[in-house]
Every structure is written in C-alpha cells, then in structure tokens.
Simulated scan of single mutants.
Amino acid sequence: MKTTIVHDYLTQRGGAERVVLEMARAYSSDVVLTSVYDPERTYPQFSDMQVSTLPLNRVPLLRQDPRLALPFLSDSFSHHRITDADLVLVSSSGFAHQVTADAPKIVYCHNPPRWLHQTADYLKGSGPLVKLAIAMLRPHLTTLDRRGALSADGYIANSRNVANRIRRVYGIEAQVVHPPRGLEPFGPEEPVPGLDAGFLVTVGRARGYKRTDLLMSAVAGMPDQRLVVVGGRSDEPWPDNIVQLTNVSDAQLRWLYKNAAGLLACSWEDFGLTPVEAFGFGTPVGAIQEGGYLETCVDGLTGTWLDATTDDSLRASIRRLLSGTWDRAAIRRHGAQWSPAAFHRQLIGTVDDVLGHRSATKAA
C-alpha cells in the first residue's frame, strides 16, 4: 500500500515532527508532503525521504517562519490534490488536514488549530498587531478548518484530551492513539559543556502556552538549583542558574535527560511528549495536573504534580520532586508503553479499523 504522509510544515525539531518520522516507519513510507521545508532546522532523517512542498516553499521568509503564511496555508493545502497514493495519513495541528486526496484520508490530530480554537492560550505574550490579524482572519479560517476536518475519512487523536476537543470543535468521534516517545534512550550521548549532573531540565519551544517563563522565574529564586531550558530563548536577563540552550542534538538531549535530577513540565499540553521521553531514562517528572499529563504521569510513581499557582507554590512542589526517592527502573517500565514499536502497532490497527468501517459504510 503506497502511503503519503502529510504534515503542516517541516521547519523545526519538535514532538510532532518526530511523530511524522514514526508514522513513516510504521508504513514503510518515505513520501512526505508539507507546506514549507527547511532541512537545516528540522530532523536530518527527513533528508533521506522524498519531501515535496507547496508553492509557498519558494518564499524564503516563509521557510524561516511559516506562521507568516497563515492567510495562505488553508488554500494552499485544499488546492493540492494527492492522486498517486493508496492511503493519505495526515499529521496536523494546523492546516494539513485540508489537503485533497483521491485515496482515503485519515488525520492524526495533535490538536485542532490552537490559534482558532484556543486563541487566548496561543496568543499569550503576542503583540497587538498579531492579535488583530488573528481576529480578522479567524472567522474565514475557522470555516475552512471545519470543512477540511469533515472531508477526512477518519480522525485519530493523540490523547483523550484532544479527542474531547475534536468532538467539541468538529463533532467528530476520534479514536485515541498516544504518540511514541520521540527520543529513544538507547543511542549516542554527548555531554553539554559546562554542565554537571543533577540539574533540572525543561524542554519546549518559545511559545506562550509553554509557560517556560514560570519555571524560569521560580528556579531563578532557587540559587542552589540550576534549570536547563532546551528549545527556547528569552531576551530577558536571567541569573546564572538559568541556562538556555538551542540547537541541541539528540545525543545532547539524551545526556540531559539521563543526567537531570528531574524534568519540569508546566505547559498546557495536548499530550506532552517530554515526560514520556524522560520516563525512558528513568528520570522523574514534575508536571502540572492538567491536559495530556493526566494520561501519562502517575503521582508518586513517575514524579509529583507541580503547583504553578504562584512562584512560591511552584518552588515548593519542585522541592518535593527533588527530595523524593524515585525508583528509576519502575519509571522506565512505566514508560515502555510509549515505545515506537507500540505506537506502530496501535496506529496500524486503528487505521485498519477506520478503513474497515469506511468500507462497510460504503457497502451498506
């Protein structure tokens, strides 16, 4: 079965991009369609695949920041028809689900577009011009978004949390398949210069809903601790116990997970890959008791819940994490359910169910 994988854009190294790679492995496919593609800024494995792009890719500025293409992405995907596939498997939290296909189209949804359906969270920290632009575009883009969702033959959600949103936003019942941990614990490791084991780590891009600033503010007031922030950089001055890293390799990220005293996860996540990645290394996790973390973290087994109500409450809950005695082998066993092999089996089985239901409905 010839399978084409579709993704919103390939210009960053994030959890969704790791999922795309595993979707391709599950179906032995190397055919990927995306809007814009920057090989230098995403995972190098995509360079070994047949990545095709939409015409927007010809604009260098859009490859640098695909969000600038917001007014055009819906039309670009909906006007592109895939004619040479037996199955189209879409990875989307934005526009990719609007692609047109002759073959069955199944959407693996990381979240309905956050800027349309969780606007306040997405725009946290954005300037007035960005907020005005979203407000003006939102009615039209919401119509196109829903039309694209209803054109799919089936929806798969990355969590119960997202399945509930899909039901609320589109009226679609989605089956749930958790994504795999994107980073396997077995592989090359590379120490990060200037760091000794025992630090705290948080991983996430610089987006308002990631709430990295809350963690930085809390740990800045804990001079005996060091927080390593991976993936985002703030222009504000921070004390020396806040270390900000960008362009971290997988080998360095393995070393960070393995040598951290704990991972901190404070963002409003639909699923949240970083805790399950940390579990693979036996690293305890402090996470807020919200969103996808409720489906993966177990208080007292994998770590503890964070209370992000105030800086003081957050510091106190971080202290609880650091003072706990954690069974790292038990954490690793808990994390095994998010291995790539488990994801492949669950994804293929769920897609087969959707295709079988589709065939039965047509026959009826």
Results as ranks from 00 to 15, higher is better:
354 V>D: 02
175 Q>W: 14
28 S>Y: 07
301 L>K: 05
334 H>G: 05
35 S>A: 15
295 E>P: 07
122 Y>M: 12
71 P>T: 08
206 A>Y: 06
251 A>V: 00
309 T>W: 00
305 W>K: 01
303 G>Q: 10
166 I>K: 08
91 S>Y: 14
190 E>P: 01
121 D>P: 01
160 R>P: 00
66 P>E: 12
130 V>G: 02
41 R>T: 07
224 D>N: 14
66 P>L: 02
111 N>S: 15
13 R>E: 10
337 Q>Y: 02
11 T>G: 13
87 L>Y: 05
23 M>P: 09
211 R>F: 00
151 S>A: 12
261 A>L: 05
347 L>P: 05
351 V>I: 05
198 G>V: 04
23 M>Y: 07
175 Q>T: 15
245 L>M: 02
53 T>R: 12
212 T>W: 06
83 T>Y: 00
299 D>C: 12
4 T>L: 03
203 V>I: 13
55 P>R: 11
274 T>I: 03
97 H>I: 08
148 G>D: 05
226 R>Y: 06
129 L>Q: 12
10 L>Y: 06
93 S>W: 13
243 V>T: 10
283 T>E: 04
273 L>Y: 11
106 I>S: 03
93 S>Q: 10
58 R>W: 09
267 S>R: 01
215 L>E: 04
262 G>M: 09
151 S>M: 13
310 T>Y: 08
210 K>S: 11
282 G>C: 07
186 F>E: 13
316 A>K: 01
202 T>L: 06
150 L>F: 10
353 D>L: 07
286 G>Q: 02
262 G>H: 09
98 Q>M: 15
24 A>V: 08
342 A>E: 13
97 H>N: 08
266 C>F: 07
151 S>L: 09
332 R>K: 15
342 A>N: 04
28 S>G: 08
126 S>R: 07
213 D>K: 14
198 G>P: 02
264 L>G: 03
231 G>F: 11
88 V>A: 03
95 F>P: 09
285 V>Y: 03
225 Q>S: 02
29 S>F: 10
214 L>P: 00
296 T>F: 02
295 E>H: 05
270 D>P: 03
305 W>F: 01
266 C>N: 04
115 W>D: 00
98 Q>A: 15
358 R>G: 02
94 G>F: 09
363 A>F: 15
317 S>F: 00
122 Y>P: 04
361 T>D: 11
134 I>E: 10
361 T>V: 00
79 H>C: 11
143 T>W: 10
44 P>I: 13
174 A>S: 05
206 A>S: 15
84 D>Q: 13
129 L>G: 11
292 G>N: 12
260 A>P: 12
19 V>I: 14
12 Q>V: 04
160 R>D: 09
42 T>P: 00
159 S>K: 06
273 L>A: 11
